[in-house]
Design a protein around this nucleic acid. Structure first.
Lengths: 337, 337
DNA sequence: TTGAAAGCGCTAACAA
DNA sequence: TTGTTAGCGCTTTCAA
């Protein structure tokens, strides 16, 4: 697997190797004739430029680090799909890592990205706390936080307006006629969760409803945990007509628990999610939910990062997108008593 | 964002920069005293070794290219999750790309990986044809095909025994009492699909059943297409008691179409999938399916690749894993007529 | 135990 | 239009 280098080509062509470089990179100051000759020769010789060597002198790897907590999570894999598409269209590739929602691991990965000299990193933080853990490293590499709202932190992020999304969710249920809405699954340590729960509270106040919140005591929001939480909940009398789940994965767990207990959705209970992960659109699930515009989030994150990479001087940018509600079949009017 | 280099540290420490290199890389031939002094200094100065420069001289990037058709597909994102874990444990990172199941795109990405000098690539091929499209490039970089069975091609791959899996699936349905089993969704251009369908046919013969196959005429196997195909199918009289879907995504589409038509699964119709993607385990879905052991597949692919990278001389290896059946709620005895 | 120096493959400034 | 040459930041041989 001996690699052909620019020197080999130069020798074969009988020119200096800077001429080969010029021919390949399309720079000016070279006759069309020799360029063509050399390009052809490169193909014949199977010459492929060594991107590592180029990175060395260009001081740019054209690589973006993407740190997610768990790529097998459908929300993140969808985001990753769009990020890759957008990045590649701009000449970049993605180095992917999973932090496993572990701050130490995340920090290690971040340092790894610095040492790999990626041009920038897009981070789906493990927790809100991530910002603090990483703050000392942040000046060393352009970074954009994605998904998590950093409020007024002096660092770039793009996220959905979680407060507003939750507010809209309550409004939606209210208009359907619900007056007892339970908020389900708020997880500690996440500003996303805090904002959603704040939005829920605010909307309840505005509409004269009594807010009621069931916290997620687990460290994660998988379906499993949602299910366990919901089982506990359903063991008690149901004095609400709708559940607003903090995340779609929570909602999926609720569906499972409801199924077991013979609670029909939406006939007996309306259920509203948040995120709009693909699974919610599956047959028999049909989850109505507050959508995070994943494609847009992804492309804004890439744009913001490349902006930052381009203008070293620039500061930071906060971009907050407005969510919307996607209606499927998990919400209806409350039953007449 | 001026980067601190090894020279800066050397100057500050008053030693040559080779000494700093030795101190950092833990090589012998350096007093423990100076090593400690230098390591401390590096930390103080925020020195992080430049992996690009190191790659340059080591002729190894410690990077693995991972080319999938679509990372948002749950099967692939799960695989990617395990691949990353296994690779990182061995000191490697992943460069992720999506080929969009497009041969040209895939070829381009493969060339990109060569030029990026990744140490090897794991490829979830777009089609069986991928092997031919890429064959000229294969000698230039260690590669392992994942998921697709290349039969006796002289290239490494790891895949599940698709033939056997399908055979087992038919046996499973047969034992439940089914005698009319329809095979659904075979897609052209995929040896995986070919093998599954062969296994189905063989099992039918062995058990004295009449094989019946409904081909997928689309180029992809998304839920959408499965749904459309199933709609056409259900418009005709149902002269089978079970459907064996070529993939879980197909099965999901079938569930949707069945739902619409009021066909109950498993009461009116048993449904067996293949792959065991996470979605199949969701509440209300409960798809019984032939499982591909994703974690094992991933770690064998990484192992096979690192073997290949380690021993330049070595040839290729074919590793075929045995699938198993995971029972949930989509299959039952056929109804008594 | 440490330092000097070559070189990895490339780009770009400068010379011719 | 083309060639020469100096690096990019590191590892590693060879000498001291």
């Amino acid at each position: 697997m001996k690699q052909v280098t620019i020197k080999d080509v130069a020798k074969a062509a009988g020119v200096s190797y800077s001429t080969v470089s010029r021919a390949m990179s399309g720079s000016p100051g070279i006759s069309e004739q020799t360029r063509r000759r050399i390009v052809r020769l490169c193909e014949e010789m199977n010459y492929t430029a060594n991107a590592v060597a180029r990175s060395m002198v260009m001081k740019s790897t054209k690589l973006i680090g993407l740190i997610v907590t768990d790529i097998s999570n459908p929300f993140m894999s969808e985001l990753a799909y769009y990020i890759d598409g957008q990045a590649r269209a701009r000449g970049y590739n993605i180095v992917l890592c999973n932090s496993l929602r572990n701050l130490e691991q995340e920090r290690g990965l971040f340092e790894l990205m610095i040492s790999r000299k990626v041009d920038g990193v897009i981070l789906l933080p493990a927790e809100t706390e991530s910002y603090n853990t990483l703050s000392a490293l942040l000046p060393r590499i352009p970074t954009v936080f994605l998904g998590e709202n950093l409020k007024d932190a002096p660092e770039s992020y793009v996220a959905v307006d979680n407060y507003r999304g939750a507010y809209m969710g309550v409004e939606y249920l209210y208009r359907l006629g619900h007056r007892q809405i339970l908020y389900f699954g708020k997880r500690r340590g996440s500003s996303t969760h805090q904002l959603r729960s704040d939005g829920y509270q605010a909307a309840c106040e505005a509409y004269g409803l009594t807010p009621r919140c069931l916290n997620n005591t687990f460290t994660s929001t998988s379906i499993q945990y949602g299910y366990q939480l919901a089982r506990q909940l359903f063991a008690q009398p149901m004095d609400y007509t709708a559940i607003f789940a903090a995340t779609d994965t929570n909602a999926l767990g609720i569906i499972q628990a409801a199924e077991e207990r013979g609670i029909r959705i939406p006939e007996d209970l309306s259920l509203l999610g948040f995120d709009n992960i693909r699974d919610g659109g599956l047959p028999r699930i049909g989850l109505t939910t507050v959508e995070q515009p994943k494609k847009l989030l992804a492309s804004m994150a890439v744009d913001a990062l490349l902006d930052k990479i381009g203008n070293e001087l620039s500061g930071y940018a906060h971009r907050i997108l407005t969510p919307s509600i996607v209606e499927r079949n998990s919400c209806s009017k409350p039953r007449e008593e």
